[in-house]
């Protein structure tokens, strides 16, 4: 089987499509959301929820990001400033050019989740990849049962997608927001995500949990979910690894014989248990 994808110049999957930054949203002091459209006015590609985009700045480099949202002629990625490329991206302005190739990887099992209750658990920037599925499910609200989002970050200022969390989503789904440490501007729940999760005691009955956040949060959430009776088949996560090519060739994102860019990034906990412990 030969895979094709939306991008690629001269049939080369490593060559990006030239895109324009339509809009930049400052989510937190170190996270910005970039809305991107191809320079020819079209949508760069149409990813499934959870799929990845390789975003590049000429002369600086490229890196893999999840696509957090999409519209008729754009895709959006939310990018945290952590290194050289993301620093340069944060310095870019609306109208600037960058390169995009993709979509890469597998995606959340949107169809097999139909009819189920969905519990999304996110920490920090880990809300960005799962948001693609939250938005997908909201657009097809009747296809899914209860939807809950349990999300936390270090502080109120660090909560990504505040407009969704406090304006768009309440009413359409259950929102359960927490911050690590109390502060005067915050009236809501205070505490770490795993503890809040345990406190909420969601029933595992016909419910799948979609989990993404820092490794330490994943570890304790997993223990909490298992205690609540969730099976590993019903806990889904999306992994981050260093990636260069996105097409399963360059070598570095492997876990055992699987490549995160090609066979992932989405895995159930049952699938991850089969792989070497090197995440």
């Amino acid at each position: 089987m030969t895979l094709t994808h939306g991008c690629g110049c001269a049939g080369n999957p490593l060559i990006p499509k030239s895109c324009t930054i339509l809009k930049i949203t400052e989510e937190t002091p170190d996270v910005k959301t970039f809305r991107l459209r191809a320079a020819d006015g079209t949508k760069p590609f149409a990813p499934m929820p959870g799929q990845l985009a390789m975003i590049s700045l000429a002369g600086v480099g490229e890196a893999m990001f999840s696509v957090t949202a999409q519209g008729d002629d754009w895709i959006e990625s939310s990018i945290k400033r952590v290194g050289e490329l993301t620093e340069a991206l944060h310095d870019a302005g609306e109208g600037d050019r960058l390169g995009v190739r993709g979509p890469y990887g597998n995606h959340f099992p949107a169809s097999s989740l139909k009819g189920k209750n969905l519990l999304f658990v996110g920490g920090g920037i880990g809300i960005a990849p799962v948001r693609s599925l939250i938005l997908y499910a909201l657009e097809r609200r009747a296809d899914y049962g209860d939807i809950d989002v349990l999300y936390g970050s270090r502080s109120y200022a660090d909560l990504v997608f505040k407009e969704d969390l406090f304006e768009n989503w309440p009413g359409a789904l259950g929102t359960h927001i927490t911050v690590d440490a109390g502060e005067s501007c915050w009236q809501g729940h205070v505490g770490f995500v795993p503890a809040y999760l345990e406190e909420m005691a969601f029933s595992p009955e016909n419910r799948a949990c979609i989990l993404c956040g820092p490794p330490i949060m994943i570890k304790f959430c997993l223990a909490a979910l298992e205690k609540m009776g969730f099976s590993k088949e019903n806990i889904i996560t999306t992994l981050e690894m260093r990636m260069k090519c996105g097409i399963g060739k360059c070598g570095r994102c492997n876990i055992g014989s699987k490549y995160v860019c090609l066979d992932g990034p989405v895995f159930t906990m049952a699938e991850l248990d089969e792989l070497p412990d090197e995440k």
């Binding site: 060559i15 000429a58 480099g61 260069k244 570095r252």
Partner: peptide
């Protein structure tokens, strides 16, 4: 292999070069 970008005059050259899994930064994330 590694993929990287180098600015040469007005053109950014996107190049691929051999890499080695024994290098410490091979899988290190940003």
């Amino acid at each position: 292999f590694d993929l990287d970008s180098e600015n040469r005059g007005g053109t950014a050259e996107e190049f691929r070069c051999w890499d080695c899994c024994m290098f410490s930064d091979y899988s290190r994330m940003a």
